[in-house]
Design a protein around this nucleic acid. Structure first.
Lengths: 219, 219
DNA sequence: CGATTAGCATACCGACGGGTAGGTATGCGA
DNA sequence: TCGCATACCTACCCGTCGGTATGCTAATCG
């Protein structure tokens, strides 16, 4: 088993190195040489674990699935069963991961670059939208949303809005103030979603819950 | 002067070809060979007009300045002097150009990719933000904004929100329904910007320049 | 205790892309 | 009409990058 362990570790190192480099320079911008140097291995090792550069990028994207989306149940737990609050919490949680986890960052960038034609990126993309849509639908049932709101369009809008904020945050401040931007996003956005005169009773900050870390074996 | 004319024409062809290709494949994804073939010229011609690939991309970005931002005066004209309406109109105008004009599309993509370190892209970026910020400030003076709204943060938010919507539109429908998405964006966003109980009296559709609207369908 | 194979490293290949060198045709001023 | 700058083309250079072929080593297994 010794060998297997080391193999898994180099694979993890490769994915982490690939993620940071992809996040930094994009898909076409990163050379496998860069990845190998960052991982401290050679191309032989890389091509033992991944058959192509595309496969490496897809592995990074799939790695992102490992912790996302969190189960709706666990989300509703920290939000007292309120779906809209769960959606807000989810956004903060995602934002936090975007700041801290290069794998998530790289996955987002790769999905939106989408230079390869495998269905994986699109699946991730629609995964975000459908997750937001599901929480929105539940919020509507709970009477937390304005009547006549187009849920699908709003879910897509939310994903775009979130991604755009992250882009701007990256360009302006290197994503340091991501959380604050998300808060302001909700401040401006919620009145349009909620019924007129609804109280501002949503918690607009990262949920401080116990942390079930599901991250990859870190180097 | 015949020669100058032809030179300007090939330069324009090159910029247009570069824009479409950059928009399609990104900066690193486009080869100068592609650009030259699309423009119907050779690399010699390209390198006569532009000293490097970077310079070509920067020329595309600067070309975007040619029509943007429209003068605040002309904007206020079609909005009856109401700055918030001008901001909405501006967004629709920009969205329309994003659909139709490959130069604008390429400029936006290049600015956000920002693979080169010249200050041009950043200038374009902050240009969008400051334009939105100026219109927001004027809107505040006109009593069209909620008290205590952070104007700078909101301007940055709007730029991000707009860009994100465009990204999603691109990924999902190839930007065909961009206008409808922008409309829905404002539907969701305006209540958070405006004072409580403010009437929904803003025109949420592309401004028709030649024929100013007589009846304004309200939100 | 060999034999085998997983898990890498090394060295290399073909293609491609940015950029250059040098030539050429065309106008344009004198 | 002569000289020269402009505007472009052809051919090539050379570094880089994705990918491969092969060699080596240690763990694993009969």
């Amino acid at each position: 088993m010794r060998k297997k362990e080391r193999a898994e570790l180099t694979r993890a190192k490769l994915i982490k190195a690939a993620a940071t480099t992809f996040d930094d320079k994009g898909f076409r911008g990163t050379s496998l040489q860069d990845v190998c140097e960052a991982a401290g291995v050679t191309k032989g090792a890389l091509y033992f674990h991944f058959p192509s550069k595309d496969a490496l990028a897809l592995a990074v994207i799939e790695e992102h699935y490992r912790g996302w989306p969190p189960s709706v149940d666990s989300l509703l737990l920290t939000s007292d069963g309120r779906a809209l609050q769960a959606l807000v919490d989810l956004s903060f949680q995602f934002a936090g991961q975007l700041v801290g986890d290069p794998v998530i960052r790289a996955a987002v960038r790769l999905v939106f670059e989408s230079e390869f034609d495998e269905p994986e990126p699109r699946r991730a993309f629609s995964g975000w939208i459908s997750a937001a849509g599901a929480l929105l639908a539940q919020s509507a049932e709970q009477g937390d949303l304005r009547d006549g709101l187009d849920l699908t369009a709003t879910a897509e809008l939310l994903v775009g809005v979130f991604t755009g904020s992250q882009l701007v945050a990256q360009s302006l401040t290197g994503r340091k103030d991501m959380i604050e931007r998300i808060r302001h996003l909700w401040v401006c956005f919620l009145p349009g979603l909620r019924p007129d005169g609804a109280p501002a009773d949503l918690r607009l900050e990262p949920p401080t819950l116990e942390r079930p870390r599901v991250t990859s074996p870190s180097l």
